[in-house]
Structure formats: C-alpha cells, structure tokens
Nucleic acid binder design. Structure first.
Lengths: 347, 347
DNA sequence: AGTGTGTCCCGAAACGTTTTGGTTTTGGCT
DNA sequence: AGCCAAAACCAAAACGTTTCGGGACACACT
C-alpha cells in the first residue's frame, strides 16, 4: 500500500473527475457550466464519472474565481414574528426563481446580533443584502460594515447615513391614518396608541398617520395617550397596562405592530376587560392564527410576501445591472375587519 | 488620469493592505490570525491600513485554503412553527459560543426544498448540518446529497439508510403516553388522536405512546379514532372536522404537534363546540402565545431551545474531533396544564 | 494544395487566503 | 569581535474553480 497515509481527502475535486473521465480540468468545467463545445461522448463520460465519484462542486472556489456568489442575504429583526417569516419566504421565492440562493439572519432586534450577521454575510461575499434593520441600532452604521455592497431596505426605513439602492414597504402614514379613521368612525374619541421606538422611521410614520387622523377629526390630541414600545410582546403588555389602568381609560388601543398587539391583548385579558365591548384593539400586520384569538383580531395587513419578493427583485435587478422598478416601492395595505373593534360603550 | 479604466475592484484584498502597511502578505495574515511574531509597531501599522482601506476578509478564499468554513447548517421543516424558531435559536446560540456561524434552511415540509438547501449548504462546504427532515421525504435520501458530511438529527428520526453521528429529541413515546394518561385521568374514554405522517418515526412513537396508554387503561382501542395528518394547520383542521362530525364524537382530541392543534381549535370554534366543556384539546409543543388563546392551550412542552443547543454541541464536538455526550440524547418533556382540558360531560 | 471555418479539447493563469520553510535582523553573551 | 538563538519578516506553494489563448483536427471551398 502507498505510504501517503494521511489520505483523508474530504471532498472529490474537479481534477479527480477529469482523471476518471480521461479529460482535462477545463473540459469538466465546460461540461458543468453546460457550455457548448463538448462532444456528446465526452459529456456522458464526464457525467458518469461525476456520478460514481459523487462529485459536489465547491462554491467557495467557484465564488472566489467568479467574484460572485449568486447569493443574497436577508436579515430580519425577529423570526418569531410571522410577518418576517412571510417576508423571508417572499425573498426566497423570488431569489430561487432568479436562481439566487439566500442566507437568513435573525437579529432579534439587537444591533450587535445584526452587525454579526451582516459582517458574516459580507465576508461570505454575498452579492447583496435585503435588510430590515433592528430597532435598537442606536449608533450602529451598517455602511461601515457592508462597504458598498448593494442593500435594499424592506419594511423599515434606513437611517439617514446608510446608503441603499432601494426601499420597499407600505405607506405607513396612510395606513395608520385610515386605520385610526376606522376607529373614529366607530365612535371612539379616546384612543391610545402603542408605537415602536421613535428612532424608527416606520414607527414615526405610523404615529404621524395616527395624529393626522385625530387632527382631521378635530379632536384634541392627548399626548399621554401615545406610548412608545419596542415592537415586542413584553412592551405591548407593559404599555397597554399603563393605558388601561390610568384615570381616564381609552376606549380603543391601536398597536403599530403585531407583537405589541398580542401583548396588549394579554394585558386586556389579565385585567379582565371585555374586548371589544369595553376596549377595542386594533393591530398592525396580519398572521395566520389571528382568527383563532378571541376576539379575533382586527388588523391592518401588509403584503409581507410581496414586500419580500419585490425587495429581492430590486436587489437582483441591480446586481445584474438591469434597471428595476422605481423606489421606494410602496405597496397597498388592507384593513382586515374582524371582531376586536366595536363602537364604544356610552357612559 | 490613468488609462486603466475598468478599475471597479469590488473588494480590497490582503495584498493591498500589505502594500499600504509596507509589509508582506504573509505578515498581514499572521497579524490577522493574531499569531505571535509580529512586532507592535508593525501590528499597529497594519491595523491602521485595515481601517483606512476598510478591509474585509474573504471567507471564500479562507475556507478554500483552510478546507474548513467554521460554519454549520440547520434545516428545519417549517419556520412559521415557533417550535423550530426556538430550536434554530438554540443551535445559533451554542454555535456562536463556539464561534461557529450558522446557515438556516426552511424546507416547508417539502423534500424538494430540503434537498435544495442541503445541496446548497454542501456546496458551500459547511462543516456539518443539524437536520430536521421534512415530512414528505418519501424516496429522498439525504446521504446521496451530503456524502459523508456529519449530520445530527433533531426532533425527528432519521430514515434508516441515512447515516448520522447523533440524534437529539425527546422520548416521544413516553411523552405521548403520559399526556394521554392525563386525559384518561380526567375521565375521558373516547379520545381521538391526530398524528403526523406515519412515515415519520417521531409520529409513530407518539402514536405508540398513545396506544400504550389506552391499553394500559384497559380500554378498547378504536382505530377509527386515529387520524394521520401532515403536521400543518390545514390537516389538523380537516381531521378534527372528521372526528367532530362523526357519529360518536370523542370527548377529547390529542394533536401530536402544535400546528395541528391550532387547526383542530379552528375546527372546534367553527362547529361552535364549547372547549373544554364539550371537547377537550391537548397539543404538543408549547408556543409563546398559547396562553392568549381562549381556552389557553394545554400542551406537552418540548425544550426546543435545549434540543437545538445540544444538537449543535454534538455536531461541533464531532467536527473538532472531541467526543461528546452519548446519543440519542433524550430530553425531558413537561405537561403544561392550562384550560383546554377538563373532565368530560356526563351524558 | 492552400485557405478558411468550425468543433473539440487542453494548459496555465488567475481569484484571496494560509502555511511552510526559509532569510534577515536583533540583541545578548562570551 | 564573534557567535547564536530568537524575533520579525517574507516568497512561494497550495486550496478548487473558471477563463483565456491556443492547438489539433476535420471538412468545405477555391
């Protein structure tokens, strides 16, 4: 037996395929990238060799040589929020159709985590990233991490100094305004709102829409009815508690994301208020089990999957030098009326 | 200006850092991998150069040279099932602590999708994968795709011919048995069960546990009470409908995963049965909003995060040549009693 | 016979790292 | 001064691909 003992080669290479098929390395490569100019005979010999050797191409080498990985990253702030799952799936489906591969990051609303993911994806030389920035990204600047990698923002606004090639989401101001108008039309006058962190453009827009609706109805705006949470269940619960236990309790609460709506619902159940009779609850973002809650939740629905698909489209178009749809791309929201809102009790 | 027009170099390399710092390429590499033998002076010059040039290491080249990527993949069947999110987070947290990076795949219970992910990860040369195989993986054999990449299975059983280096989950038979015993102890005698696909070892085990409990209680087993679904809401709904509209309706339904429990709950609500008074419902897998449902769901909880962490541990230990804990690793389940089960009405 | 035009294949050079095996410099010791 | 080990650095060879520039051959047309 040969003396070369350390024969623990982990993967078979194109070179071994070449040897087995009696061809040169470059011919194998040509065959793999099904270029023309490789005879039928040769091609079948190569395919046979690939099969018997169980050859699996090395994308590291490939990407290195090509200076392109045919992959994009998607980083979202909370995978346990079904909205982002749908968004990721949109990205994935479009990417797959354009034969791009995706890498998923879950920052859990932490800039630290997000930075790690972005850095890791950058080092992996993804061709671009669609990003839903984490909430608490205080001093963090993605630009410093990503260099001039193409970025498109989805759902949330980019910070001012973060360059990007596109943005897609909904018209948050308009959506919040019409949702609030719905509450007003039911007769509510004392409406509490729980928004996301004020540092987020998206949250600001939704708050703006809320205020605008209130003003249009010629109602005095009570700033103490405005609470800023952190887009998670816990802060939804906390701020709903605040709103529900104060002197003059609102007759309706509008939560600007689904997690906080859940937290608010928990608070309502805990206090033992009847929803919607004593307190109406309006959420943002739909999710597949919203109908299972009692009452089933009235929400404004964003087309999560479409947002993902379009974000991927803009990104990939840009990567491939095509021009794409204009941006920001603003998709339509839809008010899904279910059972959690009704006219307020007269007192 | 220089005539070299196409100066669109996308990324700065170690070589340019070397030039800027007045050092050789190998010295930069040494400095980066903070080896010894690089003077303080040189090191600071290098760091300065890295900063001003915004150097970002190329993990493709690195992985290629090292024959190791320091990354593992985790492929789960359904990211919109919170159980798997927790599992993924467990994997991620352990991996991060061992300075491994993770790649996430979401097969949506489809072998086609899973195969794509596995293949893509293999080509990327991840060092190993933790896998929760998709349900409908009929003829598919992961072995053919992954070669001899280390695989550890989590939550679900591997198929017979799929080699693996470890497995972690819960004692499904035992868990299902004691859950069923709980229903029996409440006085239920006519219990329906909705299991996952029979092709899954996990589903089989849970069914086995159910049957065993029934038999132990000396109750005649009614096979028409056993329905096999597909671990999704839709089939949970469908089979609950079947069970609830038949001649002799069961007084309790046991669903062997959380998605099917939700589907069953939807069916119950649709029919207008009072739960738990007219029909008790018992689920598998806890989720953070289970308490928000009315009734809040009684479930057997699996330690999802721990399963992920241990799976990652076994995998990484193996990759690094360490020996690990024995496998299969079976963790403890816990019955979380809430409001969806009560003694059956006497008729 | 000469010239061209396809077809099929190949060798070698890159891509950006790390590692190996050096060479030079430094400084401490006789 | 002379010597030597250690410290600091470097050039070149990999790692597994793709691509560029050709080479060899076959065939058709002058």
């Amino acid at each position: 037996m040969k003396s070369k003992a350390k024969r623990v080669r982990r993967h078979v290479t194109i070179r071994e395929v070449a040897k087995a098929a009696g061809a040169s390395v470059s011919t194998i490569s040509a065959a793999l990238n099904n270029s023309d100019y490789v005879s039928a005979d040769m091609r079948s010999r190569i395919e046979a060799a690939i099969k018997t050797l169980k050859y699996c191409p090395n994308d590291l080498a490939r990407g290195l040589r090509l200076q392109k990985t045919h992959s994009i990253a998607i980083v979202v702030p909370d995978l346990s929020n079904n909205f982002y799952i749908e968004l990721v799936r949109g990205v994935k489906d479009y990417s797959a159709s354009a034969s791009y591969t995706i890498l998923i990051g879950d920052s859990r609303e932490s800039w630290e985590e997000e930075r790690n993911y972005l850095d890791s994806f950058h080092r992996r030389r993804v061709d671009g990233v669609v990003r839903v920035p984490a909430m608490n990204t205080t001093g963090g600047k993605a630009k410093a991490i990503l260099g001039n990698l193409p970025v498109v923002y989805a759902d949330r606004h980019p910070r001012e100094h973060d360059t990007h090639i596109g943005r897609v989401g909904v018209d948050n101001t308009q959506a919040a305004k019409s949702a609030t108008s719905y509450l007003l039309s039911l007769g509510h006058r004392d409406i509490g709102i729980i928004t996301g962190d004020a540092s987020s453009g998206t949250s600001r827009d939704r708050l703006r829409g809320f205020i605008s609706a209130i003003r249009s109805a010629k109602i005095r705006l009570d700033r103490s009815m405005i609470h800023a949470g952190h887009n998670d269940m816990e802060s939804g619960h906390f701020h709903a508690m605040q709103l529900l236990t104060r002197g003059q309790r609102p007759t309706a609460i509008f939560c600007t994301n689904n997690m906080m709506a859940l937290g608010a619902l928990a608070a309502i159940q805990e206090i033992g208020l009847a929803c919607p009779e004593e307190i109406s609850l309006l959420g943002f973002d739909d999710f597949y089990w919203a109908t299972l809650l009692r009452p089933s939740l009235t929400v404004v629905r964003q087309p999560a999957r479409e947002i993902g698909m379009i974000a991927a489209r803009i990104l990939i178009d840009h990567i491939e030098g095509r021009s794409s749809i204009p941006t920001p791309a603003l998709l339509k929201t839809q008010l899904i009326v279910r059972d959690s809102c009704c006219p307020p009790k007269k007192m």
